[in-house]
Design a protein around this nucleic acid. Structure first.
Lengths: 164, 164
DNA sequence: TCCATAAGGATATCTATTATCCGTAAATGC
DNA sequence: GCATTTACGGATAATAGATATCCTTATGGA
């Protein structure tokens, strides 16, 4: 049971978008180059983010993506669910109903096994919901050496779209 | 990102094994019939449990599986990890190293994205580790009508192996 | 001896993930 | 208006993983 590659990608992409100057945008191509991932497939993931209302795409030259709302209002859970879906990580297929000696019995509510597994799933989501995208930016600025941050800023600036 | 079918199966199987009388065993066939799942494939999952030291298989007629230790010493996490593996649900592929403008930089320790995702994974596992298999038995006895419990007991008794 | 069983290997089938390609529409600059 | 750049969506291919079955082997019990 493993999350998709795309989840890692978009988390890093959002991190980069969060650090963009006001009004700035980055194209799929720039984001793909920056992270060394295939552009076409990354595009699909970014479209998921767009549909979830987390980022906004714009067309034309100097188009690209930017966050649709402040990084402080976007959680890790938002991003993960945009790509991975909101479905639980445990699917109960109600095998208790297959039981040959319990036929005719119509159990109410989810079975205890499912309840426990869903409770753990909820704990996982709670943890992700507690982390804002903005926290990522703060940590990165604190941990990444200043000269590298500047190189990154320069790299991004050279590819920046939008009304900057 | 969804867990395997086998996880649901073995959780229910363990639940049944935990309710067995002292020394009793159930064969793969009985467990498969009880839950309405394919015997051959369930067998693979039970072998995983066996390798993890959670259940003990024995050969010959009147052979089958029983718990390898008291249900109070087996957690949901034990069972889930036996089938699903102990690997984290988020794999960090270190895409930050692909960054074209950060070449030559050798970051120490996991990146913040991975740390956050792993923290959520840990919360999920913590939740599962907190639930003992024995709790499942207790709940089942409390919630399942007495007559159905008896029918199940009879059904199981007719297929019971081991030294009963 | 004979049968039932766990265990493990080999293989087939199906589904989801990963990836690529192409067409469309919109925005920008000329 | 026209060419270019971009997001977006559909279609499809390639790969990996999950699901399932079959067969052989070794062992225990009658």
């Amino acid at each position: 049971m493993q999350m998709r590659n795309q989840v890692e990608w978009v988390l890093h992409c959002c991190s980069l978008l969060a650090a963009l100057p006001e009004g700035g945008r980055l194209s799929t191509k720039a984001l793909a180059d920056f992270h060394g991932v295939p552009k076409e497939y990354l595009s699909k993931a970014l479209q998921s983010l767009s549909q979830a209302g987390l980022v906004e795409g714009s067309l034309g030259p100097s188009g690209g993506y930017r966050l649709a709302k402040p990084a402080s209002e976007i959680t890790f859970l938002d991003i993960v669910e945009a790509v991975e879906g909101k479905g639980r990580n445990f699917a109960c297929t109600e095998i208790r109903r297959n039981n040959p000696c319990l036929q005719g019995h119509d159990p109410k509510g989810p079975c205890q096994v499912a309840r426990i597994m869903w409770q753990a799933d909820a704990a996982w989501r709670r943890e992700l919901a507690a982390v804002k995208l903005s926290e990522l930016t703060v940590t990165l600025e604190r941990e990444l050496p200043a000269d590298l941050q500047e190189r990154a800023t320069t790299w991004v600036a050279a590819r920046l779209g939008g009304s900057v």
